[in-house]
Design a protein around this nucleic acid. Structure first.
Lengths: 136, 136
DNA sequence: GATAGAACCTGTAGCGGCTACAGGATCAAG
DNA sequence: CTTGATCCTGTAGCCGCTACAGGTTCTATC
């Protein structure tokens, strides 16, 4: 019961999934995508399941998951043993990462905002931003 | 009127500035640091001004400035024409970058938090996180 | 002054996550 | 059948380091 409606080229898959065509090849090398069938001339032929898989990857990337984390998630999916437990673990660890990054950036923002507020922005040779960064 | 108190080795400069010794060499290649004097045997010899410069770079990095941005700031410092105007411009542009990144991360955080809340985390084969990422 | 071992020297390769090129083959439309 | 778009492969580049190899120099101890 193979579903072979009309195979997609790499470019077509790129459009359907919203993932750059070069990136698709890269993901294949990184073992995130299975090796696809090929045409007689060697061109890659994809199906609907590839569209879904790439969309999954893209959305994970949009959430900031690393390729390694995505690899872990896909392994669970592929194994047919998707356990909420493990998925939630990966997701929650990543959530902590994100929150740490937000906290770091907020620190930077605050420091820089303060520095910038002290700076007149006029064409004068004494700049409190530079001085503050040089001292201490 | 050269000030030559006691030159620092690269390792000593690393400790003083809080910048990794290999990174110091890298910064030199990237033209953020001037080429230092050398000992008879070819070892780099640094002074106090190098400590200050490296601390400046480190603090800029801690604020998330790119090496290119730091290059721009250092050029202003080196030119003896530190204009508040230009410094503030670089700083404020970077501030916008940071705020954009924070906004992006907050979006991710919210989405992932919602997903994770929907997930029981139990050892069951149906996971709303996976399903949500696969659909749409 | 000899010697050990730490620190240094150079150039280069690797990380992640792509992106872009060169130089060629194949495909789809007209 | 021809054109030109797309595809193929492998490789190099981006950023900001970090780490290694294989060698030299410095410094501390005896």
């Amino acid at each position: 019961m193979q579903s072979t409606p009309k195979p997609l080229s790499r470019g077509a898959l790129a459009k359907r999934s919203g993932v750059n065509a070069e990136t698709i090849r890269y993901y294949e090398n990184m073992s995130l995508l299975p090796e696809p069938d090929r045409s007689a001339g060697g061109h890659r032929l994809y199906g609907e399941d590839d569209v879904q898989r790439l969309c999954f990857i893209r959305r994970c990337r949009e959430m900031g998951f690393s390729l390694e984390e995505i690899h872990g998630l896909l392994s669970l999916v592929d194994s047919q043993r998707v356990s909420c437990e493990r998925v939630k673990k990966i997701a929650d660890e990543h959530l902590l990462d994100i929150r740490t990054k937000i906290a770091d950036l907020k620190m930077m923002e605050k420091t820089l905002r303060t520095l910038s507020a002290d700076c007149s922005g006029k064409d004068v040779p004494e700049c409190p931003i530079i001085e503050s960064l040089q001292t201490g």
